[in-house]
Design a protein around this nucleic acid. Sequence first.
DNA 1: CAAATTCAGTAAATCGATTTATCACAGCCC
DNA 2: GGGCTGTGATAAATCGATTTACTGAATTTG
Lengths: 354, 354
Amino acid sequence: MARSKTVATSRPRGNDAAPSVSQKFLAEHLGLSPATVSLVINRSPAAKSIPHRTQERIHKAARELNYRPNFMARSLRAQRSFTVGVVVPEISEGYAALVLSGIEDHLLEEGYFYFVVSHRHRPDLIQEYPHLLQQRAVEGLIAVDTACRKGVRIPVVAVSGHSKVEGVTNIVLDHVSAAKLAIEHLAELGHRKIAFIKGQQFSSDTEVRWEGVQAVAKELEIEINERLVGQLEGESSSPQLGYDATRKLLTTEEAFTALFAFNDVSAIGAIRALRETGRRVPEDVSVVGFDDIQSAAFQNPSLTTVRQPLRQMGVIAAETLLTRINAPVRARYPKAITVNPELILRESTARAKH
Amino acid sequence: MARSKTVATSRPRGNDAAPSVSQKFLAEHLGLSPATVSLVINRSPAAKSIPHRTQERIHKAARELNYRPNFMARSLRAQRSFTVGVVVPEISEGYAALVLSGIEDHLLEEGYFYFVVSHRHRPDLIQEYPHLLQQRAVEGLIAVDTACRKGVRIPVVAVSGHSKVEGVTNIVLDHVSAAKLAIEHLAELGHRKIAFIKGQQFSSDTEVRWEGVQAVAKELEIEINERLVGQLEGESSSPQLGYDATRKLLTTEEAFTALFAFNDVSAIGAIRALRETGRRVPEDVSVVGFDDIQSAAFQNPSLTTVRQPLRQMGVIAAETLLTRINAPVRARYPKAITVNPELILRESTARAKH
DNA sequence: CAAATTCAGTAAATCGATTTATCACAGCCC
DNA sequence: GGGCTGTGATAAATCGATTTACTGAATTTG
């Protein structure tokens, strides 16, 4: 991709290197000591002996000189950074973006900022980033769909985390309910031969979700045919993976009338593979996705899917993390918080042909 | 937005088990002064007078005691935060997610971290966030699809920014080329009656892109019928907006055989609206999108679209910003950097029926 | 042998804010 | 006049690292 630079006509930032006012400068300007200024600015209880007149004077000057406390200095002294780290596999369109937006909402409201890092499933980065973040003095960590090693000394909340590690709170979906919603729906439509696409090995939900599916299938007396079970392979989050997995399923020539995909993104790829091989969705094959990402409603056909409350999971993760950060030293904390799925009925499922 | 709680003086810090080793502690442990330790750890040239044996000793102890320099202290002293701020409209969007991932790639490689904030088009937040970020000591700002007010004292790079503000480098697509790619393609397929959907007022690309369309239409002698020009309305980034805009276009009863949407997300909504009203895509109406987000290739029909190199724009933005941050204060800097679009042919366009 | 140089480090100031302990002074009481 | 109280502050230590100017001893040089 070519890129051209238009001529740099401009002079440097015309702004005089505005030496930002420090507390000391402000104090001198007022003929007071930094201590007094600090006490007043921070509305410290110790400032009760400072008369109202002086306090006003200080606030006025602070406003006029546009005094902004130096964040580093304050943090250094207080040993607080008001910053957390968020570890995601990648900043993709679907899953992570929604969770992030929930996280952001709550954190910013509470005056926290956050660093995002994406490891793209590279084990070295998964290992390294938590340490880098701790060096950056984050007060807590949110791991999204990422199995964190132990040995982190700060509070950790894992969204869709399942490993029971000391110090980690897991935010998890009720995967048995989820499987039940999807499979009961398909069963009610008369489907018996159901194909499944499992998630990638590294995805932290893969195993639990699959166990849910197995349990529910047994309960509903639906046979799981090994030859109708595919798996996503590869590290991207493109629909291509679902496409590939479905093409592979189709080579077995084993018939099926419904497909339960690991997520919406792979369901989208699956639908394309089905159509390319002459199968209509939902007339010939019903497809159920998972997550309910934004574009699920606008696929053609629109996607029937199990909604995870991703945004809400982000909010809960942020809330939980901040609570833990601000809790007393050895306070108890929840090991896991469960949220519930919801079945969203759209066009990609229909009654089974017999 | 709630501001942070004016420096909580008491600090809870959930987990105090490991008192991290400071440089001073390390120095005492070694029977040396902090100065020596600092010089050696930082491989300062001034450490050349320290014999190799001692240097080894220091490094060994640092490793064994797991010494991690305190980031705040170091930043305070050096007046460097190695942090930049990224302002986006929202995270849960194809566009921003791709740009972000490019930004991240480059920044982390260079040892920088970044804060993300999303303003969701709220004017107060657009105004406030740059200041909050500056208080957090970020060394530069990247504004994605966001018009930044002036008065920022640090380097700013705007992705898809068009306002010429002192201190801002704009990363822009060549919108005339983009319009040409799309419209020439449609013209070659025999389309004369083309409908357009413009972006929202607040989107910084809307105006420039529309000017490109007008220029190219004139050049190719294609008439732009006012009644066939729609506009996205609303602040979300859901396909719903494109759906609504298209339904509105269809009420005019003015015939058209092709539609050029403002972006892929709205094109997806548009296709649904067209299909719901009995028009087949691409047989009856060809649709061209813009951006080439990940799911564009997996729509049904897959989307012909003008690709913006979004990821690359993110990388360029990060590169440019870091160059500017590390340049001498009054150095020149580019006012604009242009990148080129590419037409991606897929299934949503076809020869016009006559 | 005195002066200069090298060696091996160190003391102390600094970055900017926070916080505890302290202080000077005025007025009041006995 | 001494003691006490209250007012209105402030000095100084601290957070943890960086950096400049310096020092005492050993060694080399003139």
